[in-house]
Design a protein around this nucleic acid. Structure first.
Lengths: 114, 114
DNA sequence: CTTCATACGTAGCAACGCTACTTGTCGTTC
DNA sequence: GAACGACAAGTAGCGTTGCTACGTATGAAG
């Protein structure tokens, strides 16, 4: 998967994984990886700043905890975040249907008929 | 449609509209607008540099002509461009199905029952 | 003669995600 | 007990990309 393709859709993905329950950053990375069959293997340098962006925006809230001597920052969706997710979803639908109109259309006949 | 959403997919769109035949820049803008029901209304400052990028990459070729005293630069897909388009299409499919797995899933019950 | 549609273009900016690196604990292996 | 990998968090700086705001010029319409 091309790296820059995510541009503008990462927030939506993060909100979507958090919709199913609170997770800490590292677990979010793993959730994205497993739920996408390995297609989304995002580096920490992508995830952590994005989560802080979302927190600044009020879409998620975080709480620290210590598990086995390891510091964890667990994020959970806020009500505002749930609203934002709904918006992102409809935005995604519009975007993907618009672009899909140009790109999904016809796979050029790879099966070039004789 | 959010502005930055296109990030990384613009080239694919341009190749896709040119797949149906050569067009000049201004006509490409109109084609994108009409074929997307107005959702894609891209400014010249987006299109022209993108077309030059594609030309530098060898995906399109341009020829100048004068129509009614107006200079036109008509772009057409090259063979390499056709190949690139095929790649972009499969990239798009992978991308949209991956993201869609998170976002298309379930429209949260907008029909919040009273 | 002014305005709008046509037609091309550039300069500079802002956003976003990535690469590369750092810090620290725990568990396992040598 | 040293070393290494998995776990867990983070920052600094960079490159790409599309957008905003301009600038130029012709032809048609009023």
């Amino acid at each position: 998967m091309k790296a820059q393709a995510l541009h503008g859709h990462l927030d939506a993905l993060l909100l979507a994984v958090l919709e199913q329950g609170p997770l800490h950053g590292y677990a979010i990375i793993e959730a994205l990886r497993s739920r996408s069959d390995g297609h989304l293997d995002l580096p920490t340098g992508t995830i952590y700043p994005a989560l802080r962006r979302l927190e600044r925006a009020g879409h998620v809230a975080s709480t620290w905890s210590t598990v086995n001597g390891r510091e964890r920052r667990t994020y959970q969706l806020t009500d505002a975040g749930r609203g934002a997710l709904a918006g992102e979803r409809s935005g995604w639908r519009e975007f993907s249907s618009t672009v899909g109109r140009f790109l999904d259309a016809d796979t050029p006949p790879t099966t070039t008929p004789a």
